[in-house]
């Protein structure tokens, strides 16, 4: 406003300087709230557990300010922790891949539907997602339990009762069910932007459907695939609800160990829990950075 009403300035420099100052103020105003919130309630808490991870656990679940590396040493020597890492990452990869295989055709289907239907179809993916995660996991408990729906069908057909609860399969079903919308939404966003006439062009030029898909559509929708995979993989690996409810104590993931160290252990061991949480985070970040590097290279 001010710039328009001010009479022509003596020099262009004065104008551009004024404009730059206003620009800077605008940026500051826009950036500050987010930066403030995330510094205080995201970055600082991580600094706190970083400090805790080098302290000594106290006798009543508190921390004693004595510096130590013991917490980290335990993480690499006790098989309890190492096994939990491996199982968590393996289940995370499986869940992501299954979600991708199920989610991609669904996203294509929605993107190719008549515009009027798209919103409805997309919301139909979202509605289960709007129900609480626990509720969705609980729904599978009803279906999978020993006298649940699947076993009712199985025994009605004359087959012996299956024990589905407290298995890795049950956990995997629960994870895929819970995370699928996280995959479909970003996939849809990038498939929707994809120009399907390119596929026509590819087949005009003699490419088979499969070749057109792998060489044209897949690379162009890679941002959606990458975003969806990350959005699915992260919450999966940190899960403890699904593995707790559908896996019993038999399918222990890292989340379960962390929860126990922080709240249930007697006494709670925050320094060890902090060290485990940080290591877990670090390993995941390395995986993700590696993953993003490889996908962007493919894009180029």
């Amino acid at each position: 406003m001010a710039i328009e009403t001010v009479p022509p300035p003596a020099s262009h420099e004065a104008l551009s300087q004024q404009r730059r100052a206003r620009e800077r103020l605008k940026v500051f105003g826009l950036v500050f709230p987010g930066l403030f919130w995330l510094t205080f309630f995201f970055a600082l808490p991580l600094v706190v557990i970083f400090i805790y991870s080098f302290l000594t656990p106290g006798p009543r679940g508190d921390v004693v300010w004595i510096f130590t590396f013991d917490n980290y040493a335990r993480l690499f020597t006790e098989s309890l922790f190492v096994n939990a890492y491996i199982r968590s990452i393996w289940l995370g990869i499986l869940t992501t891949v299954i979600c991708l295989i199920i989610g991609y055709p669904l996203a294509v289907f929605i993107a190719q539907a008549p515009p009027r239907w798209r919103t409805i179809l997309l919301f139909m993916v979202l509605i289960p997602f709007w129900t609480n995660f626990l509720v969705r996991t609980y729904a599978w408990m009803i279906i999978l339990q020993n006298n649940g729906l699947i076993n009712w069908i199985v025994t009605s057909l004359g087959f012996p009762r299956l024990s589905l609860m407290n298995t890795q399969t049950a956990v995997l079903i629960g994870l895929v069910y819970g995370e699928l919308p996280f995959m479909v939404l970003p996939l849809y966003a990038s498939i929707d932007r994809f120009d399907f006439t390119l596929m026509q062009a590819a087949s005009d030029l003699g490419a088979s459907k499969f070749r057109a898909f792998t060489r044209v559509m897949l690379p162009l929708t890679m941002p959606g695939i990458a975003a969806g995979s990350v959005l699915v993989f992260i919450p999966t690996v940190g899960q403890f609800v699904v593995s707790d409810l559908l896996g019993g104590a038999k399918v222990d993931m890292l989340g379960n160990l962390l929860q126990r160290l922080f709240t249930r252990a007697n006494p709670p061991n925050w320094p060890l829990g902090s060290a485990l949480a940080l290591m877990f985070m670090l390993v995941l970040m390395i995986l993700i950075v590696f993953y993003f590097r490889s996908t962007t290279e493919d894009d180029r």
Binding site: F41, F42, P45, I49, G238, I288
Partner: peptide, 15 residues
């Protein structure tokens, strides 16, 4: 987004 939710939750609890 990238950090596991449980790590964030525990860090907030500690914080």
């Amino acid at each position: 987004v990238v950090i596991p939710e449980i790590v964030m939750a525990l860090s907030l609890l500690a914080f």
